[in-house]
């Protein structure tokens, strides 16, 4: 694995608040790693620690194989895009993109030429003469991307760059960000709280919670084999249902104590016959092709995602089926995944 970015035992505290607790992370050169987590998980702190904007309280940060822990942000050759204010309002797009080059002493012409080239990379070459206030939100972030890329950074850090855009634009921009990444191959750490963005963008996803990684893996792994109940509940739209092991759903071997059973809404089938437990339909949300069915089963809430055409009506009592291979088991005490022998058959 070529060294892109390596964090060893990185902790970061600000006053009484501990934002990161012993983070270990290796991002191979050229990878796009998405850091996913709820607000307050420490996502931005992680980026700031990598960039050097906040000094780490323990651990080391290495970029391209060199230890940069003691280096100032300007020496690390990283660039960053923020959620807001990634552009200086008094400069034109061209000057914004050329800002770093000019700071480092490049001539006006050389900087302008490089800026134009970077602008073309992200498709904002027609905006060069404009000022930030004359741009739409999407254009602004596109320019911010160009500004960050012009430096040819060793590590590219994005802190929720699409969070302020409307849904449609967010989808388009994330495709473009992925395309730009594929073209340039810059090692990238992308922070978001939006799990669908993480799934769509990341080569790997690192799920952060309370300053620690709960799981680092490919989108597929994180979705199929969540390592903790928190990952299970956080990833997926909506997240996984979690029910007690001795509740309405049981493992093929019978009720189990001390564990929680997880099942994704997509894997809940409705309309089964006994011995499937019966659930009462509380509410139905139609999402186009699919419908989200809110049920109560043995006093526990349960979500099912079913084809809209086959949806039940509120008040219906329906049998609930889950294939055993779709059951996830978590230790109630630790929240960690309990490995299961792959068993065929139905849970019930």
């Amino acid at each position: 694995m070529t060294a892109g970015l390596r964090l060893r035992g990185v902790s970061l505290s600000r006053g009484a608040v501990t934002a990161l607790r012993g983070i270990d992370l290796a991002v191979p050169r050229g990878e796009l790693l998405v850091v996913l987590g709820p607000s307050g998980a420490g996502k931005s702190s992680l980026l700031r620690a990598i960039a050097g904007l906040d000094p780490v309280t323990a651990g080391t940060v290495a970029i391209g194989g060199r230890d940069v822990t003691a280096q100032r942000p300007g020496q690390r050759n990283v660039s960053m895009v923020f959620q807001n204010h990634s552009l200086l309002p008094h400069l034109t797009v061209a000057d914004n993109i050329a800002f770093g080059d000019r700071i480092r002493g490049a001539g006006h012409r050389a900087a302008a030429a490089r800026a134009a080239q970077a602008a073309a990379t992200v498709g904002c070459q027609d905006l060069l003469a404009r000022r930030p206030h004359q741009l739409s939100g999407g254009e602004r972030q596109r320019v911010a991307l160009a500004r960050a890329l012009v430096r040819e950074p060793d590590v590219f850090l994005l802190d929720e760059p699409l969070a302020n855009l409307d849904a449609e634009l967010r989808l388009r921009m994330r495709t473009e960000i992925r395309a730009v990444h594929d073209r340039l191959g810059t090692t990238t750490v992308y922070v978001t709280h939006d799990q669908s963005e993480a799934m769509a963008l990341g080569d790997r996803i690192a799920v952060l919670r309370d300053g620690r990684f709960e799981q680092v893996g490919t989108p597929d792994e994180v979705w199929r084999q969540p390592r903790t109940r928190h990952v299970a509940a956080f990833v997926g739209a909506p997240g996984m249902n979690l029910l007690p092991g001795d509740g309405p759903l049981t493992l093929p071997g019978g009720p189990a104590t001390g564990v929680e059973l997880g099942v994704r809404p997509e894997h809940v089938t409705l309309g089964g016959t006994p011995p499937d437990p019966l659930g009462e339909v509380e509410r139905v949300e139609v999402l186009g092709e699919d419908a989200l069915v809110h049920l109560t089963v043995g006093g526990h809430p349960l979500l099912a995602r079913v084809p809209a055409a086959a949806r039940p009506a509120p008040g219906d009592r329906v049998g609930i089926g889950v294939a055993a291979e779709h059951l996830h088991v978590f230790d109630t005490a630790t929240g960690e995944r309990v490995p299961q022998p792959t068993a065929a058959g139905r849970a019930g």
């Binding site: 942000p73 960053m80 700071i103 480092r104």
Partner: peptide, 9 residues
């Protein structure tokens, strides 16, 4: 704005 400038050195 200041962090951008700091990152650029």
């Amino acid at each position: 704005a200041y962090e951008l400038a700091e990152l650029e050195g």
